[in-house]
Structures are given as C-alpha cells and as structure tokens.
C-alpha cells in the first residue's frame, strides 16, 4: 500500500463517498445523489476519478454523470466543478482537471456541484451554460484591425515591459468561470476586467478602450452577474492567478470613459 509520507495517509485504493448534483435537464429539479467509489489512486486526476465512476454507472445501466472537460491540462477552461465548496477544489492555481486525488484521503466525502450563478444555468448534472461569458467577449472583447493585407508587425510599436507583462497576465484568463463560482455575489468582474485589461494596456487596444469597457460592463450587467464587493475570493480561486488589480483598472477605465 502506498502512503503519502508527509501526511501519513493512504493514497492508494481509496474508498470515497461522492455527493453529486444530478439534474436531468435545464428545467428539471435537481438533487444531490450519493455514490460510493472504491479503488481510487492518488495519482488519478479528479476527472479520471469521475471517469471511473461513470464506467461503473454505465456498466450498471445507469446514466453517467455529465461534466464539462476538453484539454485536461488546464488550458481550455472547460472543466468547471465546485468541489467541497470551492471552484476547482481545494488546491490553488489549478483547474479541476489538474486536481489530483492525492489531495483527498481514504474515507473522505466529496461534495461535487455545478458552478452556481443565475447567469450560468445548469444544462445537465454538472454542466452549466457559460455562453454569458461569450456574449461579454462579443460585446467588445477584441480590437478592430484591418487584417486584409496590411497587418503591421506588432513589434514595431514599443511597449513598456510592465504593460506588456500585465497585459499578458490578464490574457492568460481561460474563461473558466471559477471567479463567478467562488464569489458570494456571483460577480463576473474578474473575468471581464481581465478581458478589458489585456487590451487597455496595449497601444493597439487603447484606441477603443472607452467604448470597450462601457460595452463589456453593460453586457456583464445584462447577463445578471452580481456586484463585486471586493471579497477577493475570485483572485484566490482563479486557476491562472488573475489579479484584483485588473478589477481596479477596469473601474478606473470605466469611470474615465463615463465622464468623457
């Protein structure tokens, strides 16, 4: 039997109780259902553990638990689970697909729920509709450049190193929605501010900065996300470490654009 030496815990052949949100479709009333799962290895990812559960369920002729996933390496932002009351589980700076089962111990009960927000309605089981994020992006999460034959080399415009870094960091947001899920107000400010910042910090994006911030905030509000009260939960739970500085920047940009 393998043991996690530092914690002296069994991390092989773990037996776990899963409490999972099951919901037939968007309109159905869902409920938590208990499952006992056996033989889980600490080196499995959280999603692999769910694969094992689903195999069991399919073999028994039951409906598998539906959950979102794609890249399984922390890039796409598809995986989205609220695990024991935290988006992407207890570890920091990782997505659900990067969460390892060695974070848990034999005999644990794990509560698995979909990301909850009125703007993220459940489609089925653990899958939520995050197209509200797409609509915020579509509202103005871009730069308008004519790319037909006259693109300019980006490196021809000198950019301050700090701005380039901050913009790059903001651009690492993968749109997973953990910020919304973690926020007690289900606010989408961290996501929206990352998208606003990534352009506002660069000369190419600055030109449309005013229109952009007004349009994106307007869309964010229309989608029914809550009001930020600076609890900072989003920054802590964000798998990409997107900083609250982005929200402050968005507030500045918004006020500047409003008084113009």
């Amino acid at each position: 039997m393998r043991i996690n030496k530092s914690l002296n815990l069994q991390i092989e052949n773990m037996k776990l109780t899963l409490k999972i949100w099951r919901q037939e479709n968007a309109k159905a009333k869902g409920k938590m259902v208990d499952y006992i799962i056996d033989g889980i290895d600490g080196d499995m990812s959280f999603l692999e553990m769910l694969d094992v559960l689903n195999e069991d369920l399919v073999n028994k002729g039951e409906q598998p638990v539906e959950f979102d996933h794609d890249c399984r390496e922390g890039i796409c932002g598809a995986c989205s689970l609220q695990i024991n009351g935290e988006p992407h589980g207890p570890d920091k700076l990782i997505t659900t697909c990067q969460l390892h089962m060695r974070t848990f111990k034999d005999g644990d009960t794990i509560v698995i729920e979909p990301f909850r927000a009125t703007a993220f309605p459940v489609i089925k089981d653990l899958i939520v509709d995050r197209t509200s994020f797409d609509r915020i992006q579509q509202a103005y999460g871009y730069v308008s450049v004519n790319t037909s034959g006259n693109t300019i080399d980006a490196n021809s415009i000198p950019i301050k190193k700090e701005n380039a870094d901050d913009s790059f960091n903001a651009a690492t947001c993968i749109g997973c929605g953990a910020c919304v899920a973690a926020c007690k107000n289900a606010s989408a400010m961290l996501f929206t501010s990352a998208k606003v910042s990534q352009f506002a910090l660069l000369p190419q994006g600055e030109v449309e900065a005013d229109r952009r911030v007004l349009a994106m905030v307007e869309q964010m509000d229309k989608e029914g996300f809550g009001n930020c009260t600076n609890t900072g939960a989003c920054e802590i739970e964000c798998p990409k470490g997107i900083s609250l500085e982005n929200i402050a920047r968005m507030n500045r940009e918004y006020l500047k654009a409003s008084v113009k």
């Binding site: 938590m32 729920e113 996300f225 609890t231 900072g232």
Partner: peptide
C-alpha cells in the same frame, strides 16, 4: 446591492467554503 447579489445566485450551493478564499468581514 445585497438584494441584487442574492438574485445573481438563485440556487445556492449545498456546500460553500467561503472561509477558504475570503475573510468573514468581507462576506
């Protein structure tokens, strides 16, 4: 703000571990 924010999460979590990421005061 409080009323609007409550509306933004019409279905609550069964388990919400707020203390893992924010202060009691802020929540």
């Amino acid at each position: 703000l409080e009323i609007r924010n409550r509306r933004s999460r019409s279905i609550n979590y069964v388990r919400f571990n707020g203390s893992a990421n924010s202060s009691w005061m802020s929540r």
